[in-house]
Every structure is written in structure tokens, then in C-alpha cells.
Design a protein around this nucleic acid. Structure first.
Length: 520
RNA sequence: GGCGGCGUAGCCAAGUGGACUAAGGCGACGGAUUGCAAAUCCGUUAUUCGUGGGUUCAAAUCCCACCGCCGCCUCCA
């Protein structure tokens, strides 16, 4: 199977081939842990997660490295500016390490809730200062750097290919520049690979300068990614990902540093996730983490709860998070997406309906019928492997969900969910609170009572189940479903008139909700 | 000012020259079903793809102009 992916470097969708198949070396820019990730950040990680899953679907063996930035990035590119980590620490009256740990943990919690596969390797910027200094020294030796008052800078005019990723040359960048270059820089695009600690000021985090320069300092804004990527994935990288905003500066600089230090081409494939933006009447534009005004996953979950997507409606916090994942999957990753509460609610409804369809197919499937439906899987793979066209893939999944014939349906839906990551497999079969024959007896009796128009008796039985948080749902085909008002859905086929119909022994339920369901 | 993207039904969104007489979802409406309730099922919901020209046997898809929206050029996903 081949996978076609858009490459920012060539501006085209191309067939992807790693350098040493089936291995894929993947580096994804991670979070700066000075605050919570916002839902715009999270969009990029969802895109990267889908990429990893799609590469696996195509038969590749992915090794993914993700960094945690816990040092060094300043608030602005100008000479002034605070270190975000130090600012965060001061804001919260904690040590930098505490801050980093707290927001890293929060980030990992978000990843769990969104069903994001963890990277094979995490790396922390402050653990890898030596590698960064080594890269600075390698660049200095090869004559790519110059030293000015506040730091060691990369001379972009020495790297003829600079700006290729952004599709711009030095002259274009100069012409379009809105801000004055920092004092002492030779070119507007030059950037610091190492910054010296300000004179007479003790930074919370600083290290001995590289290149034998006396005094202390800290790594430049971009050096950690290129240094760590090379350390953990070697001199050749297959894919490097990040948000679109990284194209012009961060990734262009990384290329200059890595290729400058290595002396050869470095990463072949560059992929970027588009922005999530806010509607005009709601602040407008993209979300900015540094401005402090942004939406977190936590807020999304809380609001979905407030919108009524809980209790009555077979919905819990985990579903709320995955509804956001569904919301994102419904748009292509290279397309800007505007976040709206109505849009999220629509996604939550759709997600709930899709889950119900999966549960329905599950309860009608016996374990021996777990083959997948090839024609649907083919269409699904075609969509996924065509530059991660998840909206199309989702449409294929829906066509399976709406399929009348149940054979192979459940297995196919689960197979698709390996890529979509919507938590369908987590829905497990658990025992009902009563013995099966007792339930069947109840259902028969209730049915008789209803036929005799003895609704008091019928409702008494319904109440018995309601007390256990299970709602009985009559269906026109003569079956009864169980639906829990506590957030779970139990479905069981119980014959109303035709007693020959075999009732399955168990009900399907989302395991994450079984707190609501008393065990047998 | 420079660069890039987008504009498809009430909403989200795929499709980027010919099987599009335009996927899928949400919502809405109509019907079936129903003791009640809810759910479920069936059906309907763009003769048209921002507007105006042009190219072509053929355009939502290519070209030009115009209108509108967004992003990047500053840390940023």
C-alpha cells in the first residue's frame, strides 16, 4: 500500500517513501510547557496522531520523537522579552521545574482523553543541553555563525537555500519584513542559536556558554528541535511535523541548523497542520497561547456537559473529548477550521450516533463473524492514504454504520477506528445486573401487561429497571432495548412475542461508563 | 505593503476538468411506530457550487476581473 502525503517542501501531494522502509523516522514539535495546551494546539496533535495511524495502516513502522520545551523561548524575537518558562514560574510562584511538570502532565492527560498515541520517545530540552551546545559548536566550526553582544547568531546568508521551505528567498523576506531587524544582526532572517544571559541578571536557568565563550547563557529558540531530532533519530529524518506557523521561521531555521551542522540534506518530508480559528463574533482569528486567552479541552468538556450532553444522553467526559476529535476529523488537516460551539455540538451528536451504531452492530454480531468488509475497507484506505482525507474516511465509516446487513459490520467499524481513534474498541461487553432468564421473564411479563393494557404493571417493571439506572426502550420490531439514564446504553434483544428469537447473553456498553452499571 | 489560502444546502464539510443527475454528518420537515415516553426506521431537504466574463465537446473544478473572509510576514500549533 502506498500513502500519498502533502509535502510543504515541494508544495505537492506525493507518494511517500521513507529512507529505510518500513521504518519511518518522525519528529513532531511538542508543547512549550508554560501553560495549558489550547484546542488549537491540540488540533495539530490530532493531525499528527492520524498521520501516525495512517502510516501504520500503510504498513510502516513509525518511530516518533516529540520534544517538551521547558526552556529558552522568549516572548518576542526582539532583544527584549521574557523567557516564557520564567514568566510562568513567576506568575504562579513556583519553580520552573514544577511549572514544566504540571503542564506536561496536563498535556499528557489531554493526549489520553483525545486518544492520541504517545510518541516512542519524549525528550526534554533541558535534558539535552549538551547536544544543543554541540550543534552550536559544529555550526561555529563550519563558519555559519557570528557572535554579537547578546548571543551567537546563525548567518542565513551563508546558507544559500535558506527560506526554501517557506518558498521565499532572502530578498523577499527582507522586502516583506514588518519589523526592524535586531541590532547587530547581519540579515533580518538571522537568528540566535545561543543567547547570553543578560548582564548583571541572574536567570533561573542558564548554562556555560559553548565555543569557549566565558559566561553563561541558554539555547536559542530553534536549536533544540534540530539537535534532539538528530540525537534520537539520526542524521536522516523522514518526516517533520508541526503547525503551519512553523513553516517560515522555526522550521526554516531548523533546516539551516541541521543541514549546516550535518553538511548534507536532512529531512525530506515536511507536513503542517492548519490553524483552528475562532469566529469573528467570538474574538476572531486564531487562538494565541501567549496572549493567555484561549480555550482548553477542559473548558470544552465542561461546556458540552452544560449543553446537556451528559446523564440523559449516553455521554460522559471522555465522549466530550472525543467529540472534539470527531469535530476535527470532519475537516481536512490542511484546511483552516473555525471553531464554534454549534459545530462542536453537531459533532457531539454525530459522535454519539456513530457510537450507537457501533454498539448496535456489536450486539448483533457473534464472535465468529469478525471478518471485515473488503469493499468498504478499500474505500476507507483509499481516503486515508490520500493525504489523510479523514472527512471522506468518516463518510465511508458512516456508510458501513448505515449498512443494513450486519455481517462483518462490527469488525469493519473497529478496523476503521484504528485510524480514526474514536474509542470504539473500548466499548466492552459487560454482564447485565440480573440473570438473563430473569430479564426475559420480566420482558415477557411486561409485554403481556401491555397487551392487556395493564399499564400500571408494565410501568412497575420499567421502574424496576429505572431504579438500576437502566431505561427500557421499546422498538417497533418487537424488541426491547435497555438504555441507562446514567449515561450508559445497554442493548439487549428480548423477544416480545416470538420467543424463538435467541437473546444474546450480554449487553454492550461503553466500559468507561460501567460505574453506572451494577455488576452481576 | 509582500506572500499564501478560502468562499459548495439552515450549519460543518468532501469533491478541484467528463459515472457531480454534487459524498458524509448535524439540524429541520413529512411519514411509520407508540398506552405514555424516548428511541428507532423510511422519506424529503443544493437543477446548483461568492459574482460577472472567458477557455472547452464538457467546469464546482482551468483563466481573468470583482466582492467577501482568513492566515503568515512577531513568540505561536
Amino acid at each position: 500500500m502506498t500513502i500519498r502525503l502533502y509535502n510543504t517542501m515541494t508544495r505537492r501531494v506525493e507518494e511517500f517513501q521513507p529512507r529505510n522502509p518500513p521504518r519511518v523516522n518522525l519528529y513532531t514539535c511538542g508543547p512549550t510547557v508554560y501553560n495549558y495546551a489550547h484546542i488549537g494546539n491540540l488540533r495539530t496533535y490530532v493531525f499528527e496522531d492520524v498521520l501516525v495511524r495512517a502510516l501504520k495502516l500503510a504498513g510502516f513502522d513509525v518511530k516518533r520523537v516529540m520534544n517538551v520545551t521547558d526552556v529558552g523561548h522568549l516572548v518576542s524575537d526582539a532583544d527584549e522579552g521574557e523567557d516564557k518558562m520564567e514568566k510562568g514560574a513567576r506568575r504562579e510562584g513556583k519553580t520552573i521545574h514544577e511549572i514544566a511538570r504540571h503542564y506536561y502532565d496536563a498535556f499528557v492527560a489531554d493526549m489520553h482523553r483525545l486518544n492520541l498515541l504517545p510518541p516512542e520517545q519524549w525528550c526534554w530540552a533541558t535534558d539535552e543541553i549538551d547536544a544543543q551546545k554541540a550543534q552550536v559548536e559544529a555550526l561555529a566550526e563550519k563558519g555559519f555563525t557570528y557572535v554579537i553582544e547578546d548571543g551567537i547568531y546563525f548567518d542565513t546568508s551563508k546558507f544559500p537555500d535558506y527560506g526554501r521551505l517557506a518558498g521565499q528567498n532572502l530578498a523577499d523576506l527582507k522586502a516583506g519584513a514588518r519589523i526592524e531587524p535586531a541590532a547587530g544582526k547581519k540579515n533580518p532572517t538571522d537568528f540566535a542559536v545561543w543567547k547570553f544571559s543578560p548582564k548583571g541578571q541572574q536567570r533561573l536557568m542558564e548554562w556555560d556558554n559553548p565555543c569557549g565563550i566565558p559566561g553563561k547563557g541558554f539555547p536559542g529558540w530553534h536549536i533544540e528541535c534540530s539537535a534532539m531530532a538528530i540525537k534520537y533519530l539520526g542524521e536522516y529524518l523522514d518526516i517533520h511535523c508541526g503547525g503551519v506557523d512553523h513553516v517560515k521561521v522555526h522550521h526554516s531555521n531548523e533546516i539551516a541548523q541541521a543541514e549546516g551542522a550535518l553538511g548534507h540534506a536532512w529531512c525530506r518530508w515536511w507536513m503542517h497542520g492548519e490553524f483552528l480559528t475562532m469566529p469573528k463574533d467570538d474574538g476572531g482569528g486564531k487562538m494565541s497561547k501567549s496572549s493567555g486567552e484561549f480555550l482548553t479541552l477542559e473548558v470544552l468538556i465542561r461546556n458540552l456537559r452544560d449543553m446537556g450532553f451528559t446523564a440523559e444522553k449516553d455521554f460522559n467526559d471522555s465522549d466530550a473529548a472525543l467529540s472534539y476529535r470527531y469535530f476535527l476529523l470532519n475537516a481536512h488537516y490542511r484546511q483552516q477550521l473555525t471553531f464554534t460551539w454549534n459545530g462542536l455540538a453537531a459533532a457531539a451528536n454525530a459522535y454519539r450516533n456513530l457510537k450507537a451504531a457501533v454498539l448496535n452492530s456489536k450486539r448483533q454480531t457473534d464472535a465468529s463473524k469478525m471478518q471485515t468488509l473488503n469493499s468498504f475497507m478499500d474505500a476507507f484506505r483509499e481516503a486515508v492514504l490520500d493525504d489523510l482525507n479523514m472527512p471522506r474516511a468518516l463518510a465511508v465509516m458512516w456508510s458501513v454504520a448505515n449498512e443494513k446487513n450486519n455481517d462483518g459490520k462490527y469488525a469493519t467499524l473497529l478496523e476503521m477506528d484504528n485510524v480514526l481513534g474514536l474509542g470504539m474498541k473500548e466499548m466492552k461487553t459487560i454482564p447485565l445486573p440480573w440473570r438473563e432468564d430473569e430479564i426475559r421473564q420480566d420482558m415477557k411479563e411486561r409485554d403481556k401487561a401491555r397487551k392487556a393494557r395493564d399499564f400500571a404493571r408494565a410501568d412497575a417493571i420499567r421502574d424496576k429497571y429505572e431504579r438500576e439506572n437502566i431505561k427500557l426502550v421499546d422498538q417497533p420490531n418487537g424488541f426491547v432495548s435497555f438504555d441507562s439514564t446514567g449515561g450508559a446504553v445497554l442493548h439487549i434483544y428480548t423477544p416480545r412475542q416470538d420467543e424463538d428469537r435467541p437473546p444474546p447473553g450480554t449487553a454492550s456498553v461503553d466500559e468507561s461508563k460501567d460505574a453506572d452499571i451494577p455488576p452481576c
